[in-house]
């Protein structure tokens, strides 16, 4: 792992960034599914101004 980072640091950074983003989305998805995050509740936030 360390070696590949030294050999191809840019590719390593790009992969890490991509993986990190995917992990973030996965974490959000889990939070929503387990209803820990309020985003998981399907809401309607439209209203009439009258």
């Amino acid at each position: 792992m360390k070696n590949s980072a030294k050999k191809h640091p840019i590719a390593y950074g790009l992969t890490l960034g991509y993986g990190g983003s995917l992990l973030f989305i996965l974490l959000e998805f889990l939070l929503v599914k387990t209803e820990i995050s309020e985003c998981g509740v399907w809401v309607d936030s439209g209203s009439s101004p009258d």
């Binding site: 640091p9 840019i10 390593y12 950074g13 790009l14 890490l16 960034g17 991509y18 990190g20 983003s21």
Partner: peptide
């Protein structure tokens, strides 16, 4: 990254931040 001599950390962190930022 092509012009300057950089530390290993910069070579990893800059592309990492760029990908996150683009996404």
């Amino acid at each position: 990254l092509m012009t300057f001599e950089t530390h290993l950390a910069a070579k990893i962190l800059l592309p990492l931040c760029l990908v996150v930022s683009i996404g």
